[in-house]
Design a protein around this nucleic acid. Structure first.
Lengths: 343, 343
DNA sequence: CCGCAACTTGAAAGCGCTTTGAATGCTATG
DNA sequence: CATAGCATTCAAAGCGCTTTCAAGTTGCGG
């Protein structure tokens, strides 16, 4: 069933039928009702390719999920972020296109999606420091939004981010206030912008209290459970092990917990742990009482907001750049406590 | 840059340029080279909407991820499955469209994607028992593949699945062989087909050994960490607690482990745990030595295969249905051991 | 009754591509 | 030398929609 057939059935022109269905004012209300009835009756759905050709808009948003060529890691926050975004898209009649590309060719993926007219805009996730994709997209003239920010990107751009620096500064301060001095940071990949900011927050809090940075307590890698476990084991084996650990994700915090438990250490008593909690739906940080003391910020909500901002940008390409900085909550659970007294 | 401009630049007709670029034989080899050079030089990318309109194919595959309206849960395996599929799509020049719909309107989402000509085929994930979407898709004439199967679906269809029944039967038998009699099953949502099959495997192994089914040791819900934790706690509070637990996902197994450790129980000694391991990239079950004894089957690989099968179906709509049953490995870690002697 | 505005409707062009059917120039054949 | 056959190329139609421009109807004031 297409426009032509439908209009023949109705004895109307394609023009009128199209207008009736798209809510144009110049069509008689009676006709409109008749057309709509026929459309539903015959299950007519405008072909979106044809529509796109005619309007020059695809009503599709592109997401390119990079994976590091070595690890083939899928970012665990991806599912929830996308779920949030998808919700907004659905409300605005956008579809969502999705590509998975090795990080070496992400830029090409964007270019391809946009130049082929597949998408009207794209979401850039997981920006690195000096992210080259940002200026590339900017030059191409693709409407885009960055989930996160990129230190060193020299063009203005839309972004939505969590205040990573402040939240890790607060978390670190919280541990310092509890008497901790040996505080470890199990961070995400060094080149990621968020990891850098978190480290800055951590460093700044320590400095502020006159605590020296201990390089052996600073690690960064992809935030898997295994990594959390391994790193915690390594650090506990140090002559002067940490009394508190900051973990950049709840997933690696789970690994940390496993390491502690293997050694019979109790979280909150023997050692304190704070995790960053993206509120992943399958790994909630407790229901009533948080499992981990955590810096909390819903990545699903970020997805919703990112989608809104991007749609806004598509509709108003010349507006000045918009940015949005979300503050993470610091929620206190039972994984933190006063620093144990050294004998 | 479009075909028209490009052909003008080259002083050729659109026909020839199109043919040259698409590898048709009737074009002079010299011309072809000249055309290709110009195309790359000017960054020409055929508009895929126009191409789709002309060919009647969109070169897009649709995934509709349902979420239960109550929970808004994103299936944690989603990311890795999609990563696998995306890889295959990329190799075959397909793009991937993605919709997130409440489970009440998933069918409409498929219908919409297909009828609007957005996709050439779809992937159906998370089938329930008597999954109505299967016959719906079948009637609509959409090429599709099911990740999983649906007991009670009365039309033939393509599917790829893990032998859930056998793998849980083996896992249960493994525990029985270790002397366990009180074996719990912390399963996925009851209405999911995979959960039913896993239970069947579990029940069948128990029956085979003459062990009575204990309803208090059988639970099903969405496979979150919290759920694993809560259920394990409940079961440990029983007068006659289980000595072994089967968990339907590694995520809920992590919750189980947390419950055990809270109570000072040691996995493998005080209580045995077997998990199903989808090989999620951010939650690997150990590197050298498995953390959990597990039934293992890579969901990413399943995604790759599913995508291949679907593309095959699109290219040969009238072939007889194809199915593929993967066997899960049973890998032994340190989370299982002989049943502790009762005093 | 005429003219004009307000409503409605329609014909046709155009979005960028593929593909059919026809045309062109050349070489090989009888 | 006429013709068939081949290798190349092209003009134009068509995919299903939107949208411009034009036209037909009505109703109302003058």
């Amino acid at each position: 069933m297409n426009l032509k057939k439908l209009s023949e059935i109705l004895g109307l022109s394609q023009t009128t039928v199209s207008r009736a269905l798209n809510g144009y004012p110049e069509v008689n209300e009676e006709t409109r009702i008749r057309v709509q009835a026929a459309a539903t009756k015959h299950g007519y759905r405008p072909n979106s390719r044809a529509k796109g050709l005619a309007t020059g808009r695809s009503m599709v948003i592109g997401h390119v999920i990079p994976f590091s060529s070595q690890h083939e890691m899928v970012n665990p926050i991806f599912g929830d972020f996308v779920a949030g975004a998808a919700r907004t898209y659905a409300q605005n009649n956008y579809d969502m296109m999705f590509t998975h590309a090795p990080d070496t060719s992400v830029e090409d993926s964007y270019r391809s999606l946009f130049n082929r007219g597949v998408v009207d805009g794209v979401v850039l996730q997981g920006p690195k420091v000096n992210e080259p994709r940002i200026s590339a997209l900017s030059q191409m003239g693709v409407p885009f939004i960055v989930h996160g920010r990129s230190t060193g990107a020299d063009v203005p751009y839309d972004w939505i981010d969590v205040n990573n620096q402040r939240s890790f500064e607060r978390a670190t301060q919280f541990l310092i206030d509890l008497g901790h001095r040996r505080i470890a940071l199990i961070n995400g990949l060094e080149e990621m912008d968020f990891a850098q900011r978190r480290r800055n927050g951590y460093v700044s809090a320590l400095k502020h209290s006159g605590i020296e940075i201990a390089p052996e307590l600073l690690r960064s890698a992809e935030m898997t459970e295994i990594y959390g476990h391994q790193t915690a084991c390594d650090m506990l084996d140090l002559g002067d092990p940490p009394t508190a650990i900051l973990a950049s994700s709840i997933i690696s915090a789970v690994g940390v917990r496993r390491a502690l438990e293997n050694r019979g250490l109790k979280m909150g008593r023997d050692i304190s742990v704070i995790a960053h909690d993206d509120e992943l739906s399958y790994m909630r940080n407790g229901i009533d009482v948080p499992i981990f003391t955590a810096t909390r910020s819903s990545v699903r909500h970020a997805g919703e907001l990112a989608a809104e901002m991007l749609i806004g940008r598509i509709n108003a390409p010349n507006d000045p750049p918009k940015t949005r900085l979300l503050e993470a909550e610091l929620v206190v659970g039972s994984s933190t406590g006063p620093a144990p007294q050294r004998m």
